[in-house]
Amino acid sequence: MTHPDPIPTLTRRRARRLFRPERGAGRHGRAALADDTGAATAEYAIATMAAVAFAGLLVVIMRSDEVRGILTDLVRRALTVA
């Protein structure tokens, strides 16, 4: 069974165009494409921003009167001896 839209083959011309260093890049050309320095730092920054946004959302939810009432009722039921 063949796939209806086969992936085009990577020809030499297309490979050169995709993977060659930019003109004027000098000795940093190909190495700059393969260099992933700072990638982990960027990932940590994105994860930190997502955590801060989630914490902000939780603060907004916890400050609502409805949620505060639910939590207060829950604590009262837990501490009440029947």
Rank of each mutant, 00 (worst) to 15 (best):
Ala25Ile: 00
Gly69Leu: 11
Thr11Tyr: 08
Arg30Pro: 02
Met49Lys: 12
Gly29Gln: 01
His3Gly: 06
Gly26Thr: 03
Ala34Leu: 14
Ala55Ser: 09
Ala78Pro: 00
Arg12Asp: 14
Arg17Trp: 02
Arg14Trp: 10
Arg63Ile: 05
Ala50Leu: 08
Thr80Phe: 14
Leu10Gln: 14
Ala47Ile: 06
Thr37Gly: 15
Thr48Ser: 12
Gly24Asn: 03
Ile70Ala: 10
Arg30Leu: 07
Ala39Ile: 14
Pro8Ser: 13
Arg30Ala: 07
Tyr44Glu: 10
Gly38Asn: 13
Met62Gln: 11
Glu66Cys: 01
Ala40Asn: 12
His28Ala: 04
Arg14Ser: 13
Arg14His: 13
Ala55Asp: 05
Thr72Met: 04
Thr80Gly: 04
Ala78His: 07
Ala55Cys: 11
Arg77Thr: 05
Glu22His: 00
Pro4Met: 05
Leu18Ser: 06
Glu22Trp: 00
Asp35Trp: 03
Ala47Ser: 05
Glu43Asp: 15
Thr2Lys: 12
Ala39Pro: 04
Ala55Gly: 07
Arg77Val: 02
Glu43Tyr: 08
Ala51Pro: 00
Ala55Val: 12
Leu79Trp: 06
Ala82Asn: 12
Ala34Tyr: 06
Thr2Gly: 12
Leu57Gln: 11
Gly69Phe: 08
Leu79Ser: 07
Gly38Gln: 13
Arg27Ile: 08
Ala34Thr: 10
Ala78Asn: 05
Ile61Trp: 06
His3Asp: 14
